[in-house]
Design a protein around this nucleic acid. Structure first.
Lengths: 145, 145
DNA sequence: ATATATAAAGACCTTTATATCCTTTATTGG
DNA sequence: CCAATAAAGGATATAAAGGTCTTTATATAT
């Protein structure tokens, strides 16, 4: 188990892929996305359907249809994808699973774990969907394997 | 979904509970442990059975039997519990699930995610099983709810 | 020795995550 | 309008995580 669910991992990869492939206003189909981020096609379809309903990405049916990312969404943080799919827990939950863990009622790890959580949250909140477009086009970073 | 699996969360809580309850050389039974860390008893039994096989905790059958932690194990890091239950992935895996993500073949988040991972790993490697005994005895930290 | 307390072990069951497939709906170009 | 294309939606399958129950093995006290 990683930090995010598999669904979420595919979601992040797919959104970044779509973003960099459609800055020119074009659209990209599920087949290509699935192939390029190495994910099961029909499972990914479900994920993108969900992200599209939630407005994180856009879609269009029919010939020349496909998925794309609106300009304004390029500024949204990756944390929004995580929250949409996995929820807030990873950014705010107790490290050892206590539901009432807090400053006043802390688990043993509370202080230290909070630092880690906050670093993760900060990173995901300051990293945007569009931020890697250049590097992805250059090929200096990868989304598959 | 939290950072660790539920199994792992119960495991950490239970081990810390056992540690502070058995510094005097006594043993503590599954019923008490489950009640005090608020976990399903027979599920926890499985988890402790596993941790005991792996040597992280000790156990004894029969009257006055139960679980306990050897003095030497009090020095072991919590990371050992996580690794025993969830594996290494949370400490070393790619944030977006790429199996070949590395310095040479990095995902977009590689650098930043690595920092978070490392902070988590560092924290869990420098925190020991016995470290919270006093606070748990005092009641200044909690393991339930 | 026997009765009893306790963990170990193994066989289940339930729920959630992951994944596939088939049908429907929307869009477009001719 | 028609045919082709591509996503949406729904039903279902499979695997993994989470959880329960019953029986067995082992230690202790009497």
């Amino acid at each position: 188990m990683g930090v995010f669910s598999k669904t979420c991992e595919y979601g992040i990869r797919a959104v970044l892929y779509i973003a960099h492939r459609t800055i020119d206003g074009s659209r990209v189909g599920i087949k290509e996305i699935a192939a390029e981020i190495d994910s099961p096609e029909s499972f990914l379809a479900k994920i993108l359907q969900d992200l599209s309903r939630k407005g994180l990405i856009q879609s269009m049916k029919g010939p020349n249809g496909g998925f794309y990312v609106e300009a304004e969404n390029l500024q949204r943080p990756l944390a929004d994808i995580v929250t949409a799919i996995d929820g807030e827990e990873v950014f705010s939950g107790c490290g050892m699973g206590l539901t009432h863990c807090s400053e006043k009622n802390p688990c043993p790890l509370h202080k230290e774990f909070k630092k880690v959580r906050n670093q993760l949250a900060h990173m995901m909140n300051t990293t945007t969907i569009g931020q890697f477009n250049k590097e992805l086009l250059k090929g200096s970073v990868t989304l598959r394997k």
